[in-house]
Nucleic acid binder design. Sequence first.
DNA 1: GTCGTCCCGGGTTCC
DNA 2: CCGGGACGAC
Length: 737
Amino acid sequence: MTPDPNLNPPQREAVLHGAGPLMVLAGAGSGKTRVLTQRIATLVDRGVPSYRILAVTFTNKAAGEMRERLHKLLGERAQGMWVGTFHATCARLLRVHAAAVGLTRDFAIFDDDDQKKLVAAILKELDVSERITPRAVLSRIDRARNAGDDPGALRSRDYIDDVVRRAFPLYAARLLKENAVDFNDLLLKVVDLCHHAEVGPELAGRFRHVLVDEFQDTNLVQYRLVKHFSKEHGNLCVVGDDDQSIYGWRGAEPRNLLDFDRDFPTARVVKLEQNYRSTRVILDAANAVIAKNVDRHAKALWTDRRGGEPVLVEECMDERAEADFVAQGILGLRSQEHRGDGDFAVLYRTHAQSRALEEALRARRIRYRVVGGISFFQRREIKDITEYLRLIVNPQADTAFERVVNVPTRGIGDTTVDKIRAYARGAGVPLLEAARGAVAGAPIGLGAAAQRKLQTFVELIDGLRALVAAGPAVATLVSEIIDRSEYRARLEIEDAVDGPDRVRNLGELVAAAAAFDAEAGEHASLTEFLERVSLTASADDKDGRGECVTLMTIHAAKGLEFPVVFLTGLEEGVFPALREGDGDDDMEEERRLAYVALTRAKDRAILTYARTRRSYDQIRRNAPSRFLVDLPPDAVAVRARRPAPAPVRPAMAPRPARVPDYDDAERAPAADEPVYYLDDEGEDDAVFPRGALVRHRIFGVGEIEQGSGRGPDRKLTIRFPGHGVKTIVARFVERVA
DNA sequence: GTCGTCCCGGGTTCC
DNA sequence: CCGGGACGAC
């Protein structure tokens, strides 16, 4: 194998070879993932069987990339290696040893949504008086469990602890009854396996080398797991950067990384401080921002790349002007520096900020994609269909039953379900079984009509279960569910606004199932498909950065790099975004987030802030972000005001940063307000005026009563004779004469 | 049982 | 401004 030119000889020796605990403290852009991959390849080269190697990453995406690289380096020899997220790894182990913790190998995985719904139902049963959100209860449950405590034995310090104490046993019982685990259980059950008399030692001896990427993101449970997996040989290699710890709010423990050498006194420690990604200027800016943090391993990133364009700071009037500036900047750099759209990333602190940006990009016909937001598999229509699947696989899945029994509406309402529930509880059977009993005539007080409707549902499920027995492809089953339940048909008729999108999503679900079938071949199992759905957060595995601008949160950008990065919304209260009760630690995390954002950029970083920003229908005036103040003056070019949106000037001479002050914000808006929308606007009112006749695919011809919004998303209120008044998005109708 | 209206609350999000 | 949940009217 070719030695990595990026490592000096002692580093190479330490990182690529050798046994025992190893910690690699690697700065942003130092090629840490590549180093990790090379170490794995070296291990295989030296005779470690690939199936005895476990590599854990933080995201599916990172796992996929690592697998790809390993395949390139090792070819067939990469087969059988365990490369995946903690959750995927634990799911795999748990399927094998399910019986040891009271599950069957078909267990289901509950996502956040399922968990919240279940807790909400339990809170209702408990008749909890004060307003307590399921979210709050769940986070206490998780906190206790992760600390190794039983939430059901919580010492009540306040009312909510008391609620948690009562709710948790019910929650755990419901999961067990449905043969399900939540995300946290997935790991905790494997911790239980580690203590199991037979399975524990087996797991400890299963892998010869354990490697963990992004170690600063691991929580205590995950750390416990890898310690167990490596306790016989101590071959635990962790790679991470404490400056990039941005998941503290969900239990990540950067101490796992920082104290690694305390837990493993014999650990070798390698620091990788050379950055191969960014220009000197960008790195200086990032270093200056992170230097203000107290709680960190001091590390000084350096680079061979000299100079670079100054970091540009742009003050904008409001979020629309900001979006406009970004769009205009992309056009400018596209022509002046011959950049493709795929070279650009636009980052923001929260998803809500994407809207104005999208509008500005759309107005200029710049292709973009938004990463994250609501993930594909979380969409309502997708969730509905997968819950059908779950009920079909497991007739005990009561939560699935409750979700789909009246979806699409088939006249089975709360009253009917309440009766079924009462009957089920009395008889000690699952809801589906109880429903079957009611259809067969069990006297639970259902009227004839309700009984008939319930029968339709039970027959639907039983028909689909019979189909499963014939061993169909997953895609076939999914599309049968969509058809037989009349889900698609009802969407088409009843949901004129979102229906077409939803129907398209269902099509994509069938396509995803078909891809799964193709991949899994003969052995495609429904359980595995459902697992894939639960463990896959985003559907954009297509790796489709392609030729479009990428919009995403800073969190989503971790691990990625782009030639040009726009970092938007640098305002106090937006970024850093702090809430009441947040402390210094939270501010340090915000600062790390800024560090991550800046270090994504290879050639150019362009920072923007808006003097006023509209949020929740309120216009807020924010001070410029403190992070701007921290930027080193000689690395930055500030343009405080500009007359109108103009292309970014390519080679602006650096000048001292002028720290923006509050007086700026008091200035009156200039008369020459920028033009936000370049095309289409205004035309729609002419194309779809009140009183105009339009044709819709399903409802036929109707008359426009009202319109709101603009562009292809303009909403029209239309009266269709025979169908009543519907609100429909303009692109789904055409003007008639 | 379903549909409309009102009110509330609204970070980041991997798995 | 948005969506979801709760509640009252057909």
